[in-house]
Amino acid sequence: MLAAALGIAGSAVLCATKMHDAPSETLPTVAGVILGLVAGATYAMYSWSAHRLMNRGVGRAAAMGAVFGLGGIALMPVLLTTGAPLIASAHPMMVGIYMALVPMFLGYLLFGYGLTRVTPSTATTLTLAEPAIAALLAVEIVGERLPAIGWAGLAGICASLVILSLAPATQARTPEPSRSSELPIGQEV
């Protein structure tokens, strides 16, 4: 709980660093934060669903494929209405293929492997490293400037990850068989 609270607070502070810009930037920043919260909620639901399927005996690949397949079907209307630039020329198409195969397919293949080893809450909290790494890359590669409050947000995320990595309850629990399944048919508890 402490790791999740620190991670969420650190992420919120990191988002708030953008709020010091011109007032015209406030509405897009707030909209971005709201969309980020929606994405986070769906990501948590995805992690929980995949982990639950795996705990019920569904294979890792089948569980991940089912969850992604349903998500892909849900996104088809978005693709149909906004996807024309993706296939307009070879360069955007190649970028799309790369994004689908390397960060998405490989990343979620590894994430699915991780879900067999840790709880969904731990796996989801670990993904807080993503905005921290993105902020660091923006500073180093793109040359963006991060104010002191942004560095404080990064410190909160890092503290969250340290606490999570040191916590003893990071292993996924395998469900114990129920006592009723061990009793002969017709015998009550």
Rank of each mutant, 00 (worst) to 15 (best):
L2D: 07
A3D: 04
A5H: 05
L6E: 01
G7I: 01
A9Y: 06
A12Q: 08
A12K: 10
V13P: 01
L14W: 06
L14F: 10
C15E: 05
T17E: 14
K18L: 13
K18M: 09
M19E: 07
A22R: 05
A22E: 08
S24E: 12
S24P: 00
T26H: 13
L27F: 05
T29F: 05
T29Y: 12
V30D: 00
A31L: 15
A31D: 03
V33E: 05
L35K: 06
L35Q: 07
G36T: 11
V38Q: 04
A39R: 03
G40A: 06
G40R: 03
A41Q: 02
T42M: 12
A44K: 01
A44S: 13
M45I: 07
Y46N: 12
H51E: 02
H51W: 11
R52I: 02
R52H: 14
M54G: 03
M54L: 12
N55F: 01
R56Q: 13
R56I: 00
A61F: 11
M64G: 03
G69E: 13
G69Q: 07
G72K: 01
A74V: 15
A74Q: 10
P77I: 13
L79M: 15
T81C: 02
T81Y: 07
T82F: 11
G83R: 08
A84V: 05
P85H: 15
S89I: 07
M93D: 01
V95H: 03
Y98W: 15
Y98T: 10
A100D: 10
L101M: 11
P103G: 09
P103Q: 12
P103H: 13
M104E: 05
M104F: 15
L106F: 11
Y113D: 13
G114V: 11
T119M: 03
T122K: 08
T122D: 04
A123F: 05
T124M: 12
T125A: 10
T127V: 12
L128S: 08
L128W: 00
E130D: 15
A132C: 06
A138S: 12
I141S: 08
G143C: 03
G143E: 03
E144M: 03
L146E: 07
L146D: 04
A148F: 09
A148G: 04
I149L: 14
G150I: 05
G150F: 04
W151G: 05
G153V: 02
G153N: 05
A155E: 03
G156H: 09
I157Q: 02
A159I: 07
S160I: 05
L161H: 06
L161Y: 09
I163Y: 01
L164T: 00
L164S: 10
S165D: 10
L166I: 06
A167F: 02
A167I: 00
A172E: 09
R173T: 14
P177K: 06
S181P: 01
L183N: 02
L183R: 10
L183G: 04
P184A: 12
G186C: 10
G186V: 11
G186Q: 09
Q187E: 12
Q187R: 13
V189L: 15
